[in-house]
Design a binder for these strands. Structure first.
Lengths: 195, 195
DNA sequence: GATGAAAAAGTACGACCGTGCTTTAATGAT
DNA sequence: ATCATTAAAGCACGGTCGTACTTTTTCATC
């Protein structure tokens, strides 16, 4: 990895952290340059525009999410166990990292602002949702979940649990947030389970 | 109502609309002045600072939410019917107005940014949550819901359903978002119901 | 309709925004 | 060790930001 790529990654790491806290659109090149001890123009040269920077940050966060949440889950046994692993990874990572809630804040920032960023957010959500639904469906064919269980509804509900978790955890600072999320998840699983 | 109050309200209405779309912190005085056909300084005089403007927008949206969602529900019969009315009002209003999702976007914007705005957001959430819990509890004492049902968990779950609805409705533009929300809500009610 | 009060506009400010263009410094392959 | 390439810095720009201060216009009351 060359020097360029190295600092580029360092910038993105900082950027993802800031963006998760303050939002993707309040992310500023000057501020980011100060944080990484680069000059404004030095940093800017790595990306070609602010929008490209935002997209790069999004890609960075997405890779991190895939590495830390999705992929580990796919290495556990199919069915309920895998769905459960996905949830636990998600919850665990969300507590000590900010990468996840970048998507939460970015989504409400750009949900009414057409452009490449919004398009990417939609794609990312679809991908994430597809992963969840696929895991759930293998649980249906494997007999863990009811035949008539609705995978799309499950994905909707699971997202709701996680969104409410972010709210409770980050805004309210409620230490029982993970507990609440787990109880909601158990109820959701129980409703989907066979027999 | 004097002229001043009148334009102040017009400004707030616009501001709430913009803030719901683009976020409370990207809300700009210049842009807002242009939308209301006021001069920057003319508009600014109504508030004393940008932060005061943000707080005023928040108060405006909160009043609207109380008027359109909370209060109408309290005029329906206690118990499950009232909880159901709350949900339906919330869902209905959220589809054609932006006032609601102002809180959603603002919460993720300010969840890590200490100050009066964040403090107000926390208070608002607590108030909303308290209303939900109280309605739920009268449903417990009235026999609609199980004795051991957890009101706080119910509030957590309901918020999750609504947050996921905003996500699905606004970001993805999915027309089935209300249907998904309703199904999730029915499941939630069924789990809480007595027998 | 005159007059004092309230509302809006005008003007100016320092700061920071994103983004070009040019120059210097660091890097890596030979 | 040399030298082309690449990374970073320097500098400048037009704009917009929030916020003061002053002046003009509009309003309500008698």
């Amino acid at each position: 990895m060359g020097k360029g790529e190295q600092t580029r990654l360092a910038v993105l790491e900082q950027a993802a952290d800031v963006a998760a806290r303050q939002g993707l659109s309040t992310l500023t090149i000057g501020d980011l340059a100060a944080r990484t001890r680069l000059s404004k123009s030095g940093l800017f040269a790595h990306f070609q525009s602010k929008e490209a920077l935002q997209l790069a940050v999004l890609a960075f966060a997405r890779d991190k999410f895939t590495d830390e949440v999705i992929r580990p889950a796919t290495r556990t046994p199919r069915g309920e166990a895998r769905v459960r692993a996905l949830f636990e990874n998600w919850l665990e990572v969300s507590q000590h990292s900010n990468a996840e809630c970048l998507f939460v804040s970015a989504s409400s920032e750009f949900d009414d602002q057409p452009g490449p960023v919004r398009d990417q957010l939609v794609r990312d959500h679809r991908d994430c949702s597809d992963s969840i639904m696929q895991m759930f469906r293998t649980g249906v064919t494997g007999g863990d979940f009811r035949e008539d269980a609705d995978a799309e509804q499950f994905s909707y509900d699971l997202h709701g649990i996680m969104l409410s978790f972010f709210h409770t955890h980050r805004l309210l600072g409620d230490p029982r947030a993970p507990e609440r999320a787990r109880r909601a998840f158990e109820t959701l699983l129980a409703a989907a389970r066979a027999h």
